[in-house]
Simulated scan of single mutants.
Amino acid sequence: MPSTASTNLRLRDQVRRVIRLNRYSVRTEKSYWYWIRYYIRFHGVRHPQEMGAKEIREFLTWLAVERNVAAATQNQALNALVFLYDKVLGVPVGDISGTTRAKRPPRLPVVLTHEEAMRLIAELSEPYDLMASLMYGAGLRVVESTRLRVKDVDFSRGVITVRDGKGGKDRTTLLPGPLLEKLQAHIEQIRSEWKMSNPDYQVPVSLPFALVRKYPNAGHSLAWQWLFPSSGCCTDESGNIVRHHVHSSSVQKAVKAAVKQSGIGKAAGCHTLRHTFATELLRRGSDIRTVQELLGHSDIRTTQIYTHVLGQGFAGVASPLG
């Protein structure tokens, strides 16, 4: 009889194979496997094929009631299990309508003023100041800023291309004018070190999925170099030594420290800069549909929350106090 460990290993290989066939991101792969493994352990290490809608309802309800997880967290677990049953095992999930859903409290995002954002950025050292400037100036998520490559910055068109953003989508956003010289100098430094065969550039950069097989020399090309490479090397999924981009946790840590140093007095982080990008554009008269496209929101309702931050939901209504 096969061991539990070997059974789980085979299931993980199945999950990994289907995820990569569907070209999901590495972050999604890790997240889905985390919840699948959690689900299996919750039910006494039973194989998912032995379980179904009843066990899914129990697990999701337990997350909401006992673990008190956020609605987004419960949805993430649900998405992972639906993917497992539908895409990997080929078994319908069934009726899970009786699941107790986590509450989604109505919260408005924390935003900064333009002056506060600039004060925060001024506290950061290189290259974190440039990355934070892109989060505020172009509306990038922290992960999107870390994943930028040389080829993603188009100076002639004045755009930045975001590859494999949230939901696996590509989009373009504006290239902030005040960052042109700094970005050009940054890329020129990368180009110079690459041309001089700096030892750091002898190691190929990590590439997405099967691209390394399709274009075996891409990892050494200038276009595919990370804009913000990590200081050390690591191994990819095939065991090859590669250079990855700077980890998002390093950026988050630097920004948190800068928030404290700047004395802003708000619970701000990397994503606050993206929120501030959106509210500043709307405050300055940008069309909400344009802001939606720049942010990469699939639903306009997600973008509309920023109108509430600005108080536009009360347009035309004056306080009786004056």
Rank of each mutant, 00 (worst) to 15 (best):
E144M: 12
G265A: 09
V18M: 08
G263P: 13
R157Y: 05
V45W: 14
R12W: 02
L310Y: 09
E116Y: 15
D287V: 06
S221L: 01
H186N: 00
S125Y: 03
R20C: 10
T235Q: 09
F155H: 00
L78P: 02
D95L: 06
I121S: 03
A71G: 13
G44Y: 13
N8I: 03
V69F: 00
M51G: 14
F83N: 12
L227Q: 09
V65L: 13
S231N: 12
M118T: 05
K256L: 13
L148E: 00
H43S: 09
V45Q: 11
A315I: 13
L89Y: 13
V205F: 06
K266V: 11
H220I: 05
I288R: 02
Y306D: 01
Q189Y: 00
G98Y: 11
E280P: 01
R67V: 13
H245I: 14
D299K: 07
T172D: 02
G90V: 02
S286N: 03
V255Y: 08
E126I: 05
V45L: 10
G137M: 06
V142G: 12
T28K: 10
A210R: 11
S319Y: 04
L294Y: 12
E50V: 09
D236I: 02
V317Y: 11
A218Y: 11
S248W: 02
P178F: 14
G269A: 00
Y39Q: 03
N79W: 04
P176G: 14
L282S: 07
A122C: 08
R67C: 12
V251Q: 02
D154Q: 05
Q261I: 03
P2M: 09
L175H: 07
N240T: 06
R284V: 05
V255I: 15
R213F: 09
N8R: 15
S3E: 13
S192Q: 05
K54T: 11
I241E: 14
V251C: 05
T279Y: 01
S25V: 11
V251R: 00
I19S: 06
Y39N: 08
G219C: 05
L281P: 01
S192F: 03
W194F: 10
R10F: 08
V246W: 01
Q292F: 15
N240W: 00
N240Y: 04
E280G: 07
D236C: 07
W226P: 12
L295F: 15
V259C: 13
Y85V: 10
Q74D: 05
L310A: 06
W226E: 13
K54I: 09
S97T: 06
I264Y: 15
N79F: 05
R12Y: 01
S298A: 12
K30N: 15
L282N: 05
L81F: 15
K103M: 06
